[in-house]
């Protein structure tokens, strides 16, 4: 079973939420914290469930997400 990791660069994120709706697993939410630019950055709530599909990164307008995938 594929296991993934979506790495969101907090400082590049503008908190638009497009990745939140893009994630088929519903794993992304906007943080309560503010980043250095004053946005609520996206965070992965449960990385264990990430499959590494990269749809979040595909929809990110700010190239703030890198995705890794592990094959077991």
């Amino acid at each position: 079973m594929a296991k993934g990791r979506a790495i969101i660069c907090e400082d590049r994120c503008k908190g638009c939420g497009l990745c939140v709706t893009a994630c088929p697993q519903g794993l992304i939410e906007l943080s309560k914290k503010l980043n250095n630019s004053g946005f609520h950055p996206a965070v992965v709530s449960d990385m264990e469930k990430c499959k590494g599909c990269a749809l979040c990164a595909l929809m990110c307008p700010d190239v703030a997400i890198e995705v890794e995938k592990e094959e077991s």
Partner: peptide, 27 residues
């Protein structure tokens, strides 16, 4: 082993884009 399946393209600079939050121009 972990493989990167999505990264910033090499032809892009590191500069954060000026587009408003959620503007799909960045895509």
């Amino acid at each position: 082993s972990a493989a990167k399946v999505f990264t910033k393209p090499a032809s892009m600079t590191d500069k954060i884009m000026h587009f408003c939050p959620g503007c799909t121009h960045g895509i």
